[in-house]
Simulated scan of single mutants.
Amino acid sequence: MLQNWFIPELDALSIRQDVWLQQDGAPPHYALSVREFLNDSFPDRWIGRGSPVSPAPLKWPARSPDLTTCDNSLWGYIKKIIQSRRYQNNEELKDAVRAAFATTTPTVLRKMSHRTWRRIILCYENEGAHTDTLD
């Protein structure tokens, strides 16, 4: 996804040099090949396990609250659309995910971003606690 879609989209918009990437350090994301790719694509501008921005004393907290719109709203929206049926193979599932993303309007994304800000405020007010039960 990073190589085939995300980076080309950032480049098409001429904003890659302005973007900071945050990743969660899940085992597949921590692979040396992934870290090397991120170092090449976002030099000194990615945050996560093994990133150049995380010196030893400063670690990204495990199981930190989801404070990005993709994590706390968008994937749930997409999942709700595609889980209504079973798919025969990965290509069918990929097509369904693409079709679900195509239904995501600017209005829907704006509502999702408002929810993200509400969760950020809740997280701050509750000293970094998860906001799932509060939201």
Rank of each mutant, 00 (worst) to 15 (best):
V108Y: 13
D135A: 09
P65S: 06
L109I: 09
N4H: 08
D24K: 10
G76T: 08
E92C: 06
Q23S: 00
W5T: 11
H29W: 07
N89R: 05
T105M: 03
T107V: 07
G25C: 04
F37W: 13
R98C: 11
D71Q: 12
P57T: 03
T105I: 09
F42W: 12
P106M: 05
L10M: 09
D132Q: 14
E125L: 09
N39V: 04
I15M: 12
D135R: 03
Q3G: 12
W46A: 05
M112F: 10
L134I: 14
S14F: 08
D18R: 13
A96T: 01
S84E: 11
S54K: 06
Q83E: 10
E127H: 06
T116R: 03
N4S: 12
R119K: 08
I120Q: 01
P52H: 02
V34D: 04
K94H: 02
D44N: 04
E9N: 11
W60K: 05
V34M: 14
P61G: 15
P27T: 09
T133R: 12
K94R: 12
R110F: 13
F37L: 06
Y124N: 07
M112K: 02
A99M: 03
C123K: 06
S33M: 13
I47P: 01
A100R: 13
V34P: 01
T116K: 01
R35T: 04
F101S: 02
P57Y: 01
S113N: 13
D71C: 03
T116Y: 06
P106E: 11
D132P: 01
K80P: 03
E127S: 14
F6R: 03
I15G: 08
C70D: 05
S41I: 04
E125I: 10
P57R: 01
I82W: 02
W117I: 07
R86E: 13
N39D: 01
S73A: 14
W75L: 00
D40M: 09
N89E: 06
R119S: 15
P65H: 07
L109G: 07
P65G: 01
T68Y: 07
Q23L: 11
R86A: 04
C123F: 10
N72L: 11
L93C: 03
K111N: 12
L38R: 00
R45M: 00
A99V: 06
N39M: 05
P43S: 15
I7K: 05
Y124E: 05
N72Y: 11
R110L: 10
D40K: 15
D44F: 09
E36N: 10
G48N: 04
R45L: 00
K94E: 02
P27Y: 09
P61M: 15
A102S: 15
F37R: 04
